[in-house]
Computed example of a mutant assay.
Amino acid sequence: MTVFAMAPDGVRIALHELGDPGGAPVLLIHGFSSNAQRNWIDTGWGDALAQAGLRGIAMDLRGHGESDRPSTGYDVPRFVDDVDAVLEQLALPEAPGAIGYSMGARLLWRHAGTRPHAFRALVLGGLPAGDPFERFDVDLAHRALEERAEPGRMESFIVELASVFPEHDPATLVTLAGEVSATLFDPAQAPPTVPTLLMTGEKDDRADDTAELLPLLRDGRFEAIPGRNHINAPTSRAFRRTASAFLAEHLAGGR
């Protein structure tokens, strides 16, 4: 059953349960153009979390999955507020762990860096050291989506991703990418201070510089995901098992 948290601007954020219902809680945040079902539920994360004694709560980012899709309202502070709203809705007795992938990883880095007591440990997958939305022309992307212009490399990538899953509205996701790109990701601004595991596919050409983030972390480590690229890394058994074991270790005693 899907439940909803209410963001400060009235947008409903959908939440999905997976893993062990009585386990230590872990918030899961998917990447751009994906959703909780595609990123976590369909790819076997529920079994991996359950085996590690973890309860997963996967949120659909605004504009994705079963969450609301406003015509505007996708600036970075709103996404950070959404995580606050989800944590308030959950009303957990202890701070949870969290797993984020790609855009979800950037969101968790930003959130945890400014709210150091919100999470006890993080796993951040497919996280580039820079901002993949840099130099993104949202107007050109919209025209390309309508087949009225030839997109550049970044616009082509975003339009292609926005059109992958039929349950999403590509125009909404292009707007989202444009608003997010107004606040470029600066990992040095407020790095997380909690134990953090960085994981990226060894064939990921979108985040092949993840390990460069390690010096910014107080307690961080990096592991490559064997044989995976940016798109298929969430389906990796090694990713699921390593992430679940890391969080189980750091959340032990919190149940």
Rank of each mutant, 00 (worst) to 15 (best):
R206K: 12
A24W: 01
S163W: 05
N39I: 04
F157L: 12
T2I: 12
L247Y: 07
E146I: 02
A243I: 06
D47L: 11
M154L: 14
R237V: 15
W45Q: 06
E223C: 05
L124K: 11
P192M: 07
A141H: 02
G73Q: 11
I225D: 03
D60A: 02
D139P: 14
G152Q: 04
A224R: 04
L184Y: 03
Q189T: 14
F79W: 12
E212L: 13
F119H: 09
P226N: 01
M59N: 04
H64E: 06
Q89H: 15
G130K: 05
F157Q: 10
P77L: 04
D20C: 10
L61P: 12
E155L: 05
V80W: 04
S67Q: 09
S181Y: 03
V123G: 00
E249A: 15
A36N: 08
A144C: 13
D137W: 00
A190Q: 09
L214C: 09
L214W: 05
L49Q: 04
G178P: 06
M59R: 11
D82Q: 03
W40E: 03
A118W: 06
G254Q: 08
N229I: 00
T242V: 09
A7R: 14
R135D: 14
A98H: 01
A224N: 05
D42A: 13
G220M: 07
A14L: 01
D82R: 07
L145P: 07
G97C: 06
R110I: 12
A252K: 13
P226M: 02
Y74L: 09
E66N: 11
G63H: 06
E212D: 10
V159N: 10
V164A: 14
G126H: 04
T242Y: 00
H168I: 00
P132R: 01
S102A: 15
A48G: 12
E202I: 05
G104I: 08
T72S: 12
A248R: 13
D9W: 01
G253W: 00
R206T: 02
Q37F: 13
A238F: 01
E88D: 14
L87S: 08
E167K: 07
L145A: 10
G104N: 04
G125D: 01
R143H: 05
R110T: 11
L54M: 13
H64Y: 13
F79R: 13
